[in-house]
Structures are given as structure tokens and as C-alpha cells.
């Protein structure tokens, strides 16, 4: 019985912040989504699911959903793959590793106002650095309208987003790798396990939960991507790079339709809650809690 309260005590500081800062926004988002919210005055009235219907009926909503889905899958996949490779590489001991590690993290330190505009400069068709470089090294035939052709624009923006986002994933995975007890590898080496076997049977199982968490968080982060797309293409050409983060922003501060913006937020929340419940349902048995299970009273 006592241990239960201890659990609450540990999460108390975080929970105070959560209650202070998140309960109100959650409540507001929910109420906006079911009323015709007005910025000034209390005249908003309950409209049921009308905002949800209206937002889903928007001409570009399906396109945005499709783009978001592709965007999330592709960014998370490439960011993860790249981060994993670099993390594994940086987990090998070699001279100058500390320096390389810092260099790999540098993209993370560049504020998005700089990185966004620099990438725009790089990808600009006529005065862009990429095309200039290609011409200078004699690869003129590869010159592209990087941001002006729908498919190409999507990949260009993606490339910039991966560059900006991979250091975070990398460092999280690296921290997981560092946590694997070395004796496990030593034992495997003695048993004559190949590198791929070691990766499969030691590395992956050990950082599996970190991988799951990092991917979950990165998925959530990816659909809210805003800055870099906003600067590079503003969602164009022809909506090719418009994803949910940008869509909600425009609903809010171009259309001033805060009710529909809130409706989308509620849908996202519902989606995540369903996923979490599913995950809880599937992994219920795994959750171990020493202070309870082992009946140790503290």
C-alpha cells in the first residue's frame, strides 16, 4: 500500500507541471473542437461533430493525410536507419571518435531559421548551391529544379528534414547502445558469434524498448513538422509538401478557424490514445515492477 504512494511521489513534480500546463490546453482543445469558438466573448455554442465533418470535407484534407502518412513513414524510416548506422559506427572504438560524435551532432545546434533558409538556398534552382556545385564538378546534367517540381520538392524537403532530425535519434540510440553490458558481447565473441549475429541477438534485444520509444516519439514529431517545410516550400508546389503540421497552422492562423484546427488535434490525440491502449493491451504481461511484484515493503 505504502509503495503505491511512493510511486506517486516520484512522478509528482512532473505531474504538477502536467496539470499546470497541459490539462487546460487539453480541455480547451476539446471544447473548441465541439463549439463554434469565437476569439472574443463567450458566445460560442455547442455544435456537436460539425467541425470534424467540416475539416474532413475540406478539399485538400485527404491529400494532406496522404502526404502526412508518406512523410511520416519515409522520414522516420530514413532518420532511423541513418541514426542507427551512425550510432553503431560511433559505438566502435576508434581514434577521434569524440570529435566525429560532436560533428554528427552539429546539425542539431543550428537554429531552424538558419537551417531552413540555408537549405532553401542550397536547393534554389537558378542560384542554388547544389546546382552550382554540380555544374562546377562537371555533373551539369544532374542539375534539377529541386523545389519546383512536386515529387522532387517532396524529396528535397525530406532530405533537409532528415539532416535536421537525425542527430537527435542518433544520440538517443547511441545512449541505448552504451547501456549494453560489454560482457554480453564478450561472451558472444567467445562463442564465435558473427557481427550480424551479435547485432541481432544482443544489440537489438537490448535496445528494443529504446527503439520503440524513439520511433513512437519521432512519428508524433514528424506529423507536426512545420518550420522547415514552411520556409522551403510553404507546402507547395500544388500541395505536394503540405502535411498536417502545416495544415493545422494554416487552419489556425490563416483561416482563423480555431475550431477546425482543434478538431484535427483531437483526432490526432484520439489516434495516439488508441495506439497506446493497443500497446498496453499487447504488452500487459511484460511490465515488471519490482517493488510490487517481489512483495518487498520499503
Amino acid at each position: 500500500m505504502k509503495t503505491r504512494y511512493q510511486g506517486y511521489l516520484f512522478i509528482l513534480p512532473a505531474t504538477i507541471l502536467l496539470v499546470l500546463l497541459m490539462v487546460y490546453p487539453m480541455w480547451k482543445t476539446f471544447t473548441y473542437s465541439v463549439t463554434d469558438f469565437k476569439l472574443i466573448g463567450n458566445s460560442s455554442t455547442f455544435v456537436g461533430l460539425q467541425n470534424f465533418k467540416a475539416v474532413m470535407a475540406r478539399y485538400d484534407f485527404l491529400n494532406v493525410l496522404k502526404n502526412t502518412l508518406i512523410w511520416v513513414v519515409v522520414t522516420v524510416f530514413f532518420q532511423f536507419a541513418l541514426a542507427m548506422i551512425v550510432a553503431l559506427f560511433l559505438n566502435v572504438k576508434f581514434r577521434g571518435r569524440a570529435v566525429v560524435q560532436i560533428i554528427a551532432l552539429i546539425p542539431w545546434t543550428i537554429p531552424s531559421v538558419v537551417s531552413g533558409n540555408t537549405w532553401k538556398w542550397i536547393f534554389q534552382t537558378d542560384f542554388g548551391l547544389m546546382n552550382a556545385l554540380l555544374r562546377q564538378i562537371g555533373l551539369g546534367e544532374f542539375v534539377q529544379p529541386w523545389l519546383s517540381q512536386p515529387k522532387m520538392a517532396f524529396f528535397s524537403v525530406l532530405f533537409a528534414a532528415i539532416w535536421q532530425g537525425y542527430p537527435f535519434l542518433m544520440i538517443m540510440l547511441l545512449s541505448g547502445l552504451k547501456g549494453i553490458p560489454e560482457d554480453q558481447y564478450e561472451a558472444a565473441m567467445i562463442d564465435g558469434a558473427s557481427p550480424s549475429q551479435r547485432f541481432r541477438y544482443i544489440t537489438v534485444p537490448n535496445i528494443k524498448n529504446i527503439i520503440v520509444i524513439v520511433i513512437t516519439l519521432q512519428i508524433i514529431y514528424a506529423w507536426n513538422t512545420f518550420d522547415i517545410i514552411f520556409v522551403l516550400t510553404g507546402g507547395g508546389p500544388g500541395g505536394a509538401t503540405e502535411i498536417l503540421g502545416l495544415f493545422i497552422y494554416k487552419l489556425g492562423f490563416s483561416a482563423f478557424n480555431f475550431s477546425e484546427a482543434a478538431a484535427v488535434s483531437v483526432l490526432l490525440l484520439a489516434f495516439v490514445i488508441v495506439i497506446l491502449m493497443l500497446r498496453n493491451f499487447l504488452t500487459k504481461k511484460e511490465t515488471g515492477t519490482i517493488y510490487e511484484k517481489k512483495k518487498i515493503t520499503l
Partner: peptide, 25 residues
């Protein structure tokens, strides 16, 4: 990680919300 208490997974999930809600909200 180490305690089992009522509403644990709910709280844990709630901590994700500041990341899920877009800036506009």
C-alpha cells in the same frame, strides 16, 4: 519504471500530449 500504481499508463500516456498537440492548440 519501478512502481505499479493506479493510472500509471494513463499518466504515462498523458505525458506524450504536449508533443501531440500542435503549436496552434
Amino acid at each position: 519504471s519501478r512502481y505499479k500504481f493506479r493510472g500509471r499508463s494513463v499518466f504515462l500516456g498523458m505525458f506524450l500530449f504536449s508533443r501531440i498537440l500542435p503549436r496552434v492548440s
